[in-house]
């Protein structure tokens, strides 16, 4: 049987690519990105590489796809009221300046000839820190909950560093209506600058760092952190797409094919946040971070195939978990709606 129709020629990268694979990658990352509020470059790049893209093209194509996918997810999150645009715009200033500073540090390290391993180990260090923070926060919150301690509207919380940061009253003080708190504008600017520096330094979109920073340092409810972070990822992704295209490292046809899958996945991931509890999102996020960390360690020791296997398995498991939340939640909602309508018809 002739299977040539399943392959698409990519004129810039000069390779024939199995296009259903592109749709599947787009779909999976759409689900995961919409649920966690991140771009997911760490998942897409190895996937594209396995499909046959040279690494340089995989990164550029990935960034452009992330920008488009985040746009679709942001539109959906916005309707739920999960995007604090004011916070997003304030943070954008710090993010952009930070990314440029991070890129300059990388160029300095490149001149010293020590960029590769330094970047990877710094990345591993931060991922370890994030995973520790997420699980520590969860266990502390569970303990407090069992002891009957409650922290305001949000219920029992493990890490409450943001409360200390909110006490800093350096003007201008800004109220973020959607996120529901008032703080010095310098807090989100500083946090986004630091996460931007790290993103530029590590060569990633930054969602992996910004989402927990929004929750633990700025004090956003988890759902608002997810939506607002996606807004940030969308803008920085478009900027990244432009600069990577100028370097000639993008395959536009692959971007569009992946976006088609991502459009469906993003709906599932985003709507799933409606049925998920904040701490459920945080713990699943922690597991994704752990998978990412393990894959980078494996790569550092030249186990590239095992690294890719870890990432692809993690994508599969997390995707199924999120789809389970979405379909179960949606089925319950429709059932309850039908019962309400039947009851109203009887009255």
């Amino acid at each position: 049987m002739d299977a040539s129709w399943l392959y698409m020629y990519m004129p810039i990268a000069g390779v024939n690519i199995f296009w259903p694979g592109l749709v599947l990658i787009g779909f999976s990352v759409g689900v995961i990105g919409g649920f966690f509020g991140m771009g997911g470059a760490w998942m897409v790049t190895p996937g594209l590489n396995i499909l046959g893209f040279p690494m340089a093209f995989a990164i550029g194509t990935d960034i452009a796809h992330i920008a488009g996918k985040s746009m679709i997810s942001t539109m959906r999150h916005s309707k739920f009221g999960n995007v604090d645009y004011k916070l997003g715009f304030v943070m954008l200033v710090g993010t952009m300046v930070g990314i440029e500073c991070g890129a300059q540090i990388i160029m300095y390290l490149e001149r010293l000839g020590m960029v590769g391993s330094v970047v990877r180990w710094v990345y591993v260090g931060f991922l370890m820190l994030i995973a520790f923070m997420v699980f520590y926060d969860y266990f502390k919150a569970v303990q407090k909950r069992k002891a009957g301690q409650v922290d305001g509207e949000k219920g029992a919380e493990g890490i409450t560093w943001y409360k200390t940061f909110h006490k800093i009253k350096i003007p201008p003080m800004v109220h973020f209506k959607t996120a529901g708190f008032t703080c010095s504008a310098w807090l989100p600017i500083t946090v986004s600058f630091v996460t931007g520096v790290l993103a530029g330094f590590l060569g990633i979109g930054g969602g992996l760092l910004r989402m927990p920073a929004l929750v633990y340092l700025i004090g956003c409810p988890t759902h608002i952190a997810v939506g607002t972070d996606l807004f940030e990822v969308m803008i920085s992704g478009l900027y990244g797409a432009f600069t990577y295209t100028l370097k000639g490292r993008i395959e536009l046809i692959a971007v569009f094919v992946m976006l088609t899958g991502a459009a469906i996945g993003a709906q599932i991931g985003t709507v799933a946040t409606k049925y998920a509890k904040g701490y459920g999102i945080r713990v699943a996020f922690g597991c994704a971070v752990l998978a990412c960390m393990v894959s980078i360690i494996l790569k550092q020791f030249n186990y590239s195939a095992s690294a890719a296997a870890v990432i692809l398995s993690a994508i599969g498991i997390i995707c199924i978990y999120i789809m389970g939340i979405m379909f179960k939640g949606a089925a319950n909602e429709l059932r309850e709606k039908r019962i309400r309508e039947d009851a109203a018809a009887v009255v």
Partner: peptide
Amino acid sequence: AVVLTALWGVILGVL
């Protein structure tokens, strides 16, 4: 590339 990516994102989002 940027314009078409954004446009395709919006079209798919609306659809």
